[in-house]
């Protein structure tokens, strides 16, 4: 650019044009045909709001507990159309933290999926965690930065979900702590896709100039109980007060996702669509 100013104005204009042709590889759709979808997250414990440290909850097995930390990644958002086609939102990685630590103060509970082709969408799905590829990519920024302390640095990979707290019934005699950290993308593969159904008859109307919002609720109790009595891996805090990755954590993963398979979306998971506001 410095050279251009020396040569003269026509060249400035010309190089400006060239610069833009250098950067854009593919033509983006005209602005009128894309819109956004805002996601508003709410963490709950059964029917109560999640309040860290101060509220005592009761697990499905009847054991009291408090929560001191609840963080999770949602990624790879997809929106389905009535005709069965879908739109995959590129680069959709979000970190939701009930209480953020580290340099980034954002709790991630309010985020926007943008440049979505306008249209009516009848379904939504996403991954709980960070896909295999991104676990093996180089240095990352933003939600994926290791500065967020959601990355295991030794046996490397992202922590997909983490919950910590306390319970008088915890098998840990000193601090009575609870700690469940989910990760691992090889074997076991603890990634899960979930597809919470939209409220009946509802759809998401993405339009230029409108700002639809989807209210997504995450129920922490689902770590300790599956989608149905038959599919529940009961968690008792005495024997099972801690698990950090690996196969030990799989019962919790299956509980909260309502799926035992990386590739089969859970439709009855910890996530429910509480409301859609098409504004």
């Amino acid at each position: 650019m410095k050279q251009a100013t020396i040569v003269g104005l026509p060249f400035v204009l010309l190089t400006g044009l060239l610069f833009s042709s250098c950067k854009k590889d593919s033509a983006e759709p005209p602005a009128a045909t894309v819109g956004t979808l805002t996601i508003d997250m709410e963490n709950v414990v059964g029917s109560a709001p999640l309040v860290l440290d101060r509220s005592t909850y009761t697990s499905p097995a009847g054991e009291p507990f408090t929560v001191s930390c609840f963080n999770y990644y949602l990624s790879n958002f997809k929106l389905q159309r009535a005709d069965g086609s879908e739109y995959a939102v590129p680069e959709s990685y979000f970190l939701i933290r009930e209480r953020p630590t580290g340099p980034n103060p954002d709790n991630g509970k309010h985020f926007v999926l943008d440049s979505i082709p306008a249209g009516n969408y009848t379904g939504i799905s996403f991954l709980i965690g960070v896909d295999e590829d991104r676990n093996m990519t180089g240095a990352q920024t933003g939600a994926l930065s290791p500065d967020n302390y959601m990355f295991w640095t030794w046996s490397q990979g992202y922590i997909f979900l983490q919950m910590e707290g306390n319970s008088s019934r915890s098998g840990e005699p000193g601090t009575h702590m609870l700690a469940y950290h989910v990760g691992d993308f090889r074997r076991p593969n603890n990634l899960r896709i979930v597809a919470p159904p939209l409220p009946s008859g509802g759809n998401i109307q993405v339009r230029q100039g409108h700002a639809p919002t989807l209210h997504l609720r995450a129920d922490l109790l689902r770590l300790f109980a599956g989608p149905s009595p038959a599919l529940t891996n009961s968690v008792l805090f005495g024997p099972f007060w801690m698990a950090v990755g690996g196969s030990q954590i799989v019962p919790i993963v299956n509980n909260y996702s309502g799926s035992t398979d990386r590739h089969v979306p859970g439709t009855n998971s910890m996530f429910t669509v509480a409301a859609i506001h098409n504004d």
Binding site: M136, T137, A139, F151, T153, W154, S155, Q156
Partner: peptide
């Protein structure tokens, strides 16, 4: 093979 990318490798010794 605990580390799958050279760029993230230093995180291991930093924090170990």
């Amino acid at each position: 093979g605990a580390v799958a990318n050279l760029e993230n490798q230093p995180l291991a010794p930093f924090t170990n």
